[in-house]
Design a binder for these strands. Structure first.
Lengths: 339, 339
DNA sequence: TTGTAGGCGTTATCAA
DNA sequence: TTGATAACGCCTACAA
């Protein structure tokens, strides 16, 4: 139904290749010819067929974004960063939610490649290294992984320095007099969770504080496990003065559990989180946490992809973005009883 | 680099068209031939090129989703509903954020059409009717609009019965003894905002309650304006006993303003919202609000598109999904002082 | 300055 | 049961 290059050519009485050349600015024609062509384009309301173009040029101007779930408050800003930047470069983005299921992720990746995306952004990927290394061979495909290392010269990496951020937050707590700090860890085997735990431990050891394993609890990064863990901590009858949850949802869950037991926060116990999701600002007391540059992660990823596509760079790059502490109301210095 | 149909054909010693037929199940061949083909496919790790296929078949198995912003807590669930359902049908989804800017939206729509998406889901669209009517002529394109009517037989519609929900919530308040209910309206000229206001007015009139314009305040659907409006209400020295905000962000902002002025909620004033975003569950008191079936909106949209694509239906459909009240802690019955 | 021809990787039609 | 052939709409040498 819609007009093709051929139609335009016929109407303008020139060859299709001439029209193509003019429209893409690769051919110089005399003004009169150009005028006729433009008029025909206008008249037929011609719009190039991207499919045909892509088939020919081996480029789709489309990127694939693969995330655990857009529903997780951590990702919308990132997705927005990706989409905005892609759009600025004239690219579109295809969205995929994997739910952290390796099979599902693999399927999405394959579909995306079959659809010939020019770039692939894998966030918190769960597929085996071997698969990544295999797809890294795909021609005309730039890949960047977020928060995951991979031994391949063709794949770029973007990281957030979770460990350092965890160290900073822990030290902040320590320096404020908290020496018995409970830690709510995330699921084992998830890198973003493990780094936070490592940071906590590192800070403790730097300050020569004993690591009490009974103060470390493992949760599932959700509100419920935070609540659960808060109750466990209470049940232990421990003397902790602060809890550092490795994400905000757990921090809020824990805070609620403590509050439900009549423990005033931050007066009796300080609680801090990690991620700085919107919620952190709305709970009472406002949650002190670690801000993640999510939007910037997205923009950075697209930029790395563009450098590859435009062949401005062909060596592996590893970029590290930094988080920063945002202290609100849920944490105050600890005064020892005998202080 | 990657193998094509031709390569497979050569290796299996058959014609490309035969391979195509077998792979698509449109051609019957004898077992032996089939075996050879499958083996060649395996050996070369052949994957069909969707671009070429799409060019030929006029179908991309891709949908375009156009929303104001994925960053707005209202849309991730919807997007997830769209993506999940699309995926179940073997479709991918292209994401676009318009920021409610008509020009930007138009550009996205055009790009999406140029990329030959099979379906377009326009959420809270801001472009003029004429544009929609124009693109509704595009062949091989199914369009559904969410929360916006359009006079075109080719475009399906999905609505949430905002007005009814607002009526219900208001009546709930009235029946609980609240007769002076302040209303925080959204931006004028935005349908989803206006319907809510209309519902509020309708309920008042049904119960023969006077409509006091000084109790109606216009905000911008964000936390800040809710806070602002809360302060305004207070400054007026009015005797309202409840406030109905037309979205949760404003409700929470207002609640915070009241609390900051030392007014206990819900004891002195009840506050209710609209949308049931995640936040609603986490603020204290937990916000009573109107739940929106966002995820279901997404799935419904894709289903309508699929019906069109598969030609199971070719008449316009208008589907209405229903919200429901979710009462938590921020509202209690009002006892009149002399009661 | 403009046109011709071939091909990108499929699928559909028709013959053999 | 299989194969040849012609599109789909575009781009890019190369030729004129």
């Amino acid at each position: 139904m819609s007009a093709t290059l051929k139609d335009v050519a016929k109407l303008a009485k020139v060859a299709p290749s001439t029209v193509s050349g003019v429209l893409n600015g690769t051919t110089r024609v005399k003004p009169e010819t150009r005028r006729r062509i433009m008029q025909a384009v206008e008249e037929l309301n011609y719009r190039p067929n991207h499919l045909a173009r892509s088939l020919r040029t081996q480029g789709t101007r489309t990127l694939g974004l693969v995330i655990p779930s857009i529903t997780n408050p951590f990702y919308p800003a990132l997705a927005r960063g990706v989409e905005d930047t892609a759009n600025a470069y004239g690219y579109s983005v295809l969205l995929s939610n994997t739910d952290r299921a390796p099979d599902k992720e693999q399927q999405y990746i394959e579909t995306l490649i079959d659809k010939r995306v020019d770039g692939l952004i894998l966030v918190d990927s769960m597929v085996p290294d071997s698969l990544i290394q295999e797809i890294a061979q795909t021609p005309n495909l730039a890949i960047v992984m977020m928060n995951r290392g991979i031994d391949s010269p063709n794949v770029d990496e973007i990281w957030v320095d979770f460990r350092n951020a965890a160290i900073q937050m822990t030290e902040h707590l320590i320096e404020a007099g908290h020496h018995r700090i409970a830690f709510l860890a995330g699921p084992r085997n998830i890198w973003r969770a493990e780094e936070r735990l490592l940071g906590y431990q590192e800070a403790l050891s730097r300050h020569k504080l004993e690591l009490d394993k009974s103060l470390i609890k493992y949760g599932k990064f959700d509100y419920e496990s935070g609540y659960e863990l808060g109750r466990e901590l209470l049940a232990q009858g421990d003397d902790f003065t602060a809890v550092f949850a490795s994400n905000d949802l757990m921090a809020i869950g824990c805070m609620t559990a403590l509050q439900d037991s009549g423990i005033p926060i931050p007066h009796d116990v300080s609680v801090v989180g990690f991620d700085d999701i919107d919620l952190a600002f709305f709970v009472r007391p406002k949650l002190s946490t670690v801000y993640q540059p999510n939007y910037e992660m997205g923009t950075a990823a697209v930029r790395l992809i563009m450098e590859r596509i435009r062949q401005e760079r062909n060596v592996k790059t590893r970029q590290e973005l930094t988080s920063r502490l945002v202290m609100r109301e849920s944490m105050i210095p600890h005064r020892s009883p005998d202080g």
